[in-house]
Design a protein around this nucleic acid. Structure first.
Lengths: 207, 207
DNA sequence: AAAATATTGTTAATTAAATCACAGATTCAA
DNA sequence: TTGAATCTGTGATTTAATTAACAATATTTT
């Protein structure tokens, strides 16, 4: 049984709020409280939690610790997954910095670049390899996810190499739509599109 | 009449492909060709184009120039919109660099930061102001969209200032869910969520 | 201990988005 | 010039996601 895509996204978000609440010393949370922390309704929260099969003590709200653990069982891999950032410019550094130090099942353990001044240095806490060693390093370090933050003009080329290196999932931050075989999970985030969408809805409000 | 959100996103993406085709000297494109450039079907392309009320010459495909112009009429504001980037760290720089130099109706004309070593300098081609002058500059320069790329712990605080400054649209790149009044259009992109989603679907493929 | 209240879990209804299916228009081939 | 082929535009259908509605259950109040 696989969860709806949107539910997966929200669970990831819930988890961070829940951990936050735990740190603040809370032990339980109601669906409407969790909803209020996000842009969301109590029904949606309950529906999402129903999907993962967790049930609360009636009327006490959800046990924070238990719920965090159940979400972890769903989202995390037992042993964690290794991640590489391809292209360590401003965006690559930003993404890397977000993750290093966070205790997470996703470990950014390598970055790649063509810039020889970066190679073999530690950037944002992670070692940078030459792109020419991509396949070798991906295999040796069992990297299964790549984050693509290279310039647009090399995106297609690098993607071919990632496919060749047998990557399992790819997060594309370039503005180039990529073609990968269907067994590779691909998610794309396009800044230009996002911003043009904001502009459109600023111009033409919905209601 | 406002368009479906997904259609708006795709139109933004189509436009860039279409401009690319124009540069390559093409004059027309079939729906299935445009679909192939994205992760998309020909029907979806035709449906999207139907929404904006453009019709092609039957059997010749869509006229690239005309279609680009019609999409522009829908997505762009007549006079363009002014945009500010709040927080000019790695992520802020990456976003800014994406946009400057591109001929677009979205003009990044200011960045803001608290770091005094950045203030009054030109970073990624755009002048950096102190965050303390946010409201003043937003009003003076008629900035209507803000891109939020500050550290998580100052996100809520800065957002309150943006609301105060009467911003119209907000693109949130921090991992903190923001609360803004409903008249402000808010779009959020959460890197951690995106990556956790990729991890989930790598672990549990859909079919 | 009965009544009122608050909260969950879930079925049913609704809405939004994507896909199917096909008529109509144009071009191409013979 | 007829017939086959190709492509668009759109009504009808399906699928995915959200929201409404409410019974069941626990808690609090009186």
């Amino acid at each position: 049984m696989t969860l709806p895509e949107r539910t997966v996204e929200r669970l990831s978000e819930y988890r961070r709020s829940l951990l936050q609440c735990l740190e603040e010393g809370k032990t339980h949370i109601f669906s409407h409280e969790l909803a209020d922390l996000h842009h969301n309704t109590a029904v949606q929260v309950r529906r999402d939690i129903m999907f993962i099969g967790y049930t609360s003590m009636q009327r006490k709200g959800y046990d924070l610790r238990e719920l965090v653990d159940v979400i972890g069982d769903i989202l995390d891999s037992e042993r964690g997954l290794n991640v590489a950032v391809i292209g360590i410019g401003n965006l690559g550094k930003a993404v890397t910095t977000y993750f290093v130090g966070k205790r997470s099942k996703l470990n950014i353990i390598a970055t790649f670049d063509v810039d020889t001044t970066k190679i073999d240095r530690v950037i944002s806490g992670v070692k940078c390899y030459p792109l020419s060693r991509l396949k070798e390093v991906v295999e040796a370090q069992q990297i299964s996810i790549a984050i693509l933050t290279v310039p647009a003009d090399s995106a297609a080329e690098v993607t071919a190499q990632l496919v060749e290196a047998d990557i399992k999932g790819l997060m594309n931050f370039t503005t180039v739509p990529l073609n990968v075989p269907p067994e590779i999970y691909l998610d794309e985030f396009d800044m230009i599109t996002s911003l043009e969408k904001v502009a459109y809805f600023v111009k033409s409000p919905q209601n």
